[in-house]
Design a binder for these strands. Structure first.
Lengths: 154, 154
DNA sequence: TTAATAATGATAATCATTATCAATAAGGAA
DNA sequence: TTCCTTATTGATAATGATTATCATTATTAA
């Protein structure tokens, strides 16, 4: 884990404070949950996890915090088509945890993959540069997802 | 438009019938709406459009038909983060209408772009081939989306 | 025509997410 | 510290997109 449980990463204090936000216990707890899993958790999953340690923290706060984390770019919100959003810590495209998803359109299984990241980064660099210029659009993030049938569902 | 209004494309009859489905008036009407716009319509948008010509067609049928079209691969369901799904006719990766989206995380504006499709197709081909083999996953579709700030929101 | 099945539409139900609002906690200034 | 301002929180209710139900209608094949 890149930082100690319950503390958050060193840059976090700064990131929060720099924006006028406070790094509170609920927010730390939620970040800890996100940081200690490789699953694709929805808001309620996170709420339940947090609830084990901090029963006083409510679902509303989880939603609010997740929105904040998404806004500040610390968390990415995914839609896998099952009606509930999933949240994961953001990793920069060359970061160690950067990955994409294979989504089975039959059973909904999600497979993470980290292959082809280099080639992808190449394309993205070129694409982002071009699109930024052409459409005057400042790109901060991207989503790549493949859909199909997993082993079991073929 | 690739086919006459109210008729559907030639392959459609076959596609529907081959699966045991019927190409009914409501389904034709919904396909016509999707085929005659470049906007990113949600279910209710489509319902309202269809309703102008066929007031008897209900919202339920629109949802049901869209789900069917998504299942058969004729339509792609997008999530732009505003809480409602958007639907577009599918185009093959080299098809004339194939495009991706720039999503403004501030105002929600969507910009379609068709640039870099060739390079993208290259990467996708390689990626799909590799992933299919490695994870035994049969890829049928993909999603690429860029997030950032549009001209106005920067 | 008839029997079997697919499709439809009105309605009600579901369920993830948001809005409200009063209560609490945290930070800065004096 | 103590006061003041502002941010944060949690319970509750509200929202709103999507789905389930179910009786009715349309379509197909024999």
């Amino acid at each position: 884990m890149p930082w100690k449980d319950g503390c958050g990463p060193p840059w976090l204090q700064g990131k929060f404070k720099g924006c006028g936000y406070r790094l509170t216990v609920p927010r730390q707890a939620i970040l800890d949950v996100l940081n200690s899993t490789t699953e694709h958790l929805c808001a309620e999953d996170i709420y339940l996890d947090v609830h084990k340690v901090h029963p006083a923290i409510g679902l509303t706060t989880v939603y609010r915090t997740l929105e904040l984390l998404v806004q500040t770019g610390m968390v990415f919100k995914f839609d896998f088509g099952d009606g509930k959003a999933r949240y994961e810590l953001t990793d920069s495209p060359k970061g160690i945890g950067h990955h994409h998803h294979l989504v089975c359109t039959d059973c909904g299984r999600i497979i993470d993959y980290t292959d082809f990241i280099d080639e992808e980064v190449e394309l993205l660099k070129r694409t982002e540069r071009g699109l930024s210029k052409k459409y005057n659009f400042k790109i901060t993030n991207h989503l790549i997802q493949f859909y199909g049938l997993c082993k079991k569902c073929q």
